[in-house]
Simulated scan of single mutants.
Amino acid sequence: MSPAARAALEEWLTHLRALDGRSEKTMAAYAADLRGWLSFLAHHRGGTEGLAALVTVPVGDLRAWMAHERGRGVSARSLARSLSAVKGFTAWLADRQGADATAILQARAPRFQKKLPRPLSVDGAADVLDSVGDDAREPWIAARDTAVVTLLYGCGLRISEALGLTGADHPLPEVLRITGKGNKQRLVPVLPAAREAVARYADLCPYDLTADQPLFRGTRGGALNPRLIAAAMERTRNRLGLPASATPHALRHSFATHLLASGGDLRAIQELLGHASLSTTQAYTGVDAARLMEVYAAAHPHARRRA
């Protein structure tokens, strides 16, 4: 990669951060994607080239890169994300260079089957909330784990959002202001069960929950590591006989799916989850439809005869 290309990449990443505040995890993925693309071009063409040449890359070279990525085991889903990063960088660079990047911008991403979220059943989610603290060594840790998973299922929070709460958020209000991905804020109603679970944890917690410190603490008083909640979920699902898909994030999926199944409005659920695009939330309609077909196949007389 030439120094000019490296400098352009860093400038583009800075531009993205300033434009829409994307998460550092997303930015790191984009940076890795672009470094791979630019390094491939340098090797494929036998040397580094100027910035203008990066905009006018022939479709054949782009296809060669995609074939190279698939050849080293990159999934279609990951390659589609990488291509999106390449297009974004190229469009930005083309605007600065006054060049035509149509060839790259019109390239199609590989098709892939979107995975449907795998929520728990209503009873399964309730069982998790009731028993996730059963293996804890101390009552306050049991209360902590219960409070966290109750926020994931009862409010649809991401694990990072739940663990991002501070002592200033206690006692929980009726409506929480959550800062999610891309620093986007949303308002989330808090169920009484969630407020009660957090209040119980706060009463038992041996550490001073000051306003400027994390609300949920580890055994030594530091910020709670999300891996500990994942481990508690693993023990719980093994004990309850739930599938491996019963993870902390599955509780957020369950929140959305159960709301939709109860007649919740899709756009309202989008707002509650903090999805930037309605198409992301629409994945839950696929879950609901899949369950409807299961019920149909099991219950409809004609379906039973065919089976």
Rank of each mutant, 00 (worst) to 15 (best):
A307E: 03
A91Q: 10
S245W: 08
G73S: 13
A76R: 12
L165D: 01
V190F: 02
G60V: 13
A76S: 14
P206A: 09
A76G: 06
L151T: 05
A103T: 15
P226G: 07
A99R: 11
R70Q: 12
M66Y: 07
P119R: 08
T166C: 13
R291C: 05
L187C: 04
L83P: 02
L16G: 15
L163M: 15
G218T: 12
P189Y: 08
A136D: 06
L163N: 13
I141E: 03
A197T: 14
G60F: 06
S277Q: 11
S23R: 15
E161N: 01
G241H: 15
D203S: 15
T166F: 08
A29K: 14
A67S: 11
L9K: 08
R239E: 10
D135I: 09
D134C: 04
L41W: 06
E10K: 09
R306I: 11
A4D: 09
T90I: 11
F89V: 15
R304G: 09
R72A: 15
A223C: 08
Y284C: 04
R305W: 09
W140H: 06
R235N: 01
E196G: 12
R177Q: 11
L62R: 04
D208A: 08
T166Y: 06
F89N: 11
T247A: 08
D127P: 05
L224S: 05
A232D: 04
N183E: 10
G274R: 00
A162E: 00
I229R: 10
K115T: 00
L163W: 14
V295D: 06
L93I: 06
T219I: 08
R227K: 12
L62A: 13
M1S: 10
V190D: 00
H253C: 04
T102L: 15
A109G: 09
G164Y: 02
S262N: 10
A303L: 04
G154D: 03
E10N: 13
S78V: 15
L204C: 06
L278D: 05
Q270E: 04
V128P: 00
L272M: 03
A31Q: 13
P189M: 10
T236N: 08
L157N: 03
Y207Q: 03
A109C: 14
D33I: 13
G274I: 01
A142C: 03
A289V: 08
G73T: 14
R267V: 00
S39D: 03
V148W: 01
D145T: 07
S39R: 12
G182P: 09
A244L: 14
W37D: 04
L83I: 07
L163P: 11
L273A: 00
F112I: 03
T236S: 03
G50H: 06
T146R: 09
P58R: 00
V132H: 00
A298L: 14
R186K: 11
A299W: 07
V57W: 05
A297V: 11
V149K: 02
A125V: 12
T14Y: 08
E161K: 00
R35G: 06
F216I: 08
R35Y: 00
A85L: 12
M27F: 07
V190P: 05
D134I: 01
R81F: 07
G133R: 11
L228S: 14
G156N: 01
G21I: 06
G263I: 02
D100E: 06
S75Y: 04
V122F: 10
A80T: 11
R137G: 12
G222S: 14
E11W: 12
Y153S: 02
V175A: 04
M293G: 11
A4N: 08
L9R: 13
M233Y: 14
L38G: 05
A162T: 05
E271N: 08
S262D: 09
